[in-house]
Design a protein around this nucleic acid. Sequence first.
DNA 1: GTTTGTATCTTGTCTCGCAAGGTATAGTCA
DNA 2: TGACTATACCTTGCGAGACAAGATACAAAC
Lengths: 100, 100
Amino acid sequence: MGPCILALLSTGPRFGLQLVRELDDVGQLLSSQGTVYPLLNRLHDAGFVTSYWEVNDTDRPRRYYQLTEVGRQELESFQEDWERFSGSVTSLLATIPQKH
Amino acid sequence: MGPCILALLSTGPRFGLQLVRELDDVGQLLSSQGTVYPLLNRLHDAGFVTSYWEVNDTDRPRRYYQLTEVGRQELESFQEDWERFSGSVTSLLATIPQKH
DNA sequence: GTTTGTATCTTGTCTCGCAAGGTATAGTCA
DNA sequence: TGACTATACCTTGCGAGACAAGATACAAAC
């Protein structure tokens, strides 16, 4: 899931609940708050994201997360891993014999 | 990893170490004995595979695993999940802006 | 007779996903 | 007013999974 969050953040900052909703919209990536908030902490500890509070008069205070340069590199590296991995799985599945 | 083992078994019975080697050959699926043997137990408990010992004079005794009908159904169901999931991740990754 | 290769399996650790619960604030509505 | 709903944050605790490391056994090779 981590890389998916990094991917979303690559197009601009988001806050926690927003990420939950967007991951949900992508479909089959149904995440929950219990997944996303601890994950954001881990990504922060790893130096992949930074965060800042945004407070205004009309909305609830929101903590926004944004991608760091290190996070961008991590995302790139994941992209390569994903191509190899998904390719391997897909080719493995392709060898399954059809129902008789 | 479980579905990958089921996929391999769909073309015929294998024994433990053989699965480790074949998964290793596929690449980017580098598994280890500590992964595969407990996994085979779980797949067995779930009813997805059965096992039998094969003993002969020249080789070490080997425990072969083979796919059950339930396992075949599980594999089919995974195939659909995989298409949705990998499609979602791939499309997410496609939205990443290029390096400036 | 010690090392190497093949085969089995267990143990212990670390990480991750997630359901469930907890806090706070502001708006709606009966 | 007082209850309910929505939005936002976060923590806790369970269960599952991956895997490194180690334990056992036997046979062939050197």
